[in-house]
């Protein structure tokens, strides 16, 4: 069961609302501060993408977001109502595309540098859609993309592993001594 579920009309202004909710829910779940920034940005990218897809294919349809926290992970699922082939969609056989293929890595993940500064180049060309997805890929521990229910739309599932690694949670005595020395050192500098 998701912890928080959100549906919003496909308008760019609501993406910020979705970001703020994801930030608030992850903070409440005790997610480490560094990961909260990543969640905020990745959720924003996934929702912005879903808004674009819906506005093109199915403007009346809502974007659907599910946020789930467990002791080990924080998971966000963003679903659109687009058609197959919209930016990211499952492969022709209905199976999953790899993230590399989705991002069109090698070409799409980086902006077309050759196009920059070339006279006569259409300056308003949108960047490769891979840019937003490159961000998601760079921010999220695990990304999965699949076709939505009944073959409608695309589901982007993003998971962060938030549990503290064992060794960090259980400092040995040498670790404590080093930490205490560090704290003492910084206290002296401040004083």
């Amino acid at each position: 069961m998701p912890t928080v579920e959100l549906r919003f009309a496909a308008l760019p202004g609501h993406v910020r609302t979705a970001r703020m909710i994801a930030t608030a829910v992850s903070r409440r779940a005790g997610v480490p501060v560094g990961a909260i920034d990543e969640i905020k940005l990745a959720v924003g990218e996934a929702c912005a993408r879903a808004v674009r897809v819906n506005r093109r294919s199915n403007p009346q349809a809502f974007v659907h977001v599910e946020l789930t926290d467990t002791p080990e992970s924080f998971r966000v699922v963003v679903s659109d109502s687009g058609a197959a082939g919209d930016e990211i969609a499952p492969g022709p056989d209905g199976g999953l595309l790899s993230v590399d293929a989705l991002l069109d890595l090698g070409e799409g993940a980086e902006p077309d540098l050759a196009a920059i500064g070339v006279p006569g180049t259409e300056v308003d060309q949108p960047l490769p859609s891979g840019l937003g997805l490159a961000l998601i890929e760079g921010l999220v521990d695990e990304v999965a993309v699949r076709r939505g229910q009944d073959g409608i739309g695309t589901v982007v599932e993003m998971t962060w592993h938030t549990a503290e690694p064992e060794e960090d949670a259980d400092l040995d005595s040498a670790g404590y001594a080093a930490l205490a020395a560090q704290i003492a050192g910084s206290a002296r500098r401040e004083g």
Partner: peptide, 19 residues
């Protein structure tokens, strides 16, 4: 806060001044 749309606008600006 900066997302990929913002990056796109900056790249668009760069293309314009380079022209």
């Amino acid at each position: 806060f900066l997302d990929s749309t913002g990056l796109g606008v900056l790249v668009g600006g760069l293309k314009r001044v380079r022209a």
